[in-house]
Amino acid sequence: MSDFAICLAVSAALFTLGVVGVLVKRNAIVVFMCIELMLNAANLAFVTFSRQHGTVDGQIFVFFVMAIAAAEVAIGLSIIVTVFRNRASINVDDVTMLRR
């Protein structure tokens, strides 16, 4: 089994873990952490392919992903803070106003 395959497998597994976490966790903050897991999995795949193809473009994309992730976390966490202020809860099951 090559190093390349191992990295890709880890990436896929990490991504799946993130997906499952997003689906099952109730704590909104942890849901966000799981999203970070998925982004990391994608980054790992980028770097792995970058090495495999011998170009740096994949690594450039990792920077962009990190920048966007930082922005996303900032926004997401401030949304959570606002929701908590209004509802005194960070349980995503309590935030069902999309239905109305």
Binding site: V19, V22, L23, V24, V31, V92, D93, V95, T96, M97, L98, R99, R100
Partner: peptide, 14 residues
């Protein structure tokens, strides 16, 4: 389907 729970939607997307 329209539960309002975000995770239902995420599950459907997946």
């Amino acid at each position: 389907v329209q539960t309002g729970v975000v995770q239902t939607y995420a599950a459907l997307i997946l």
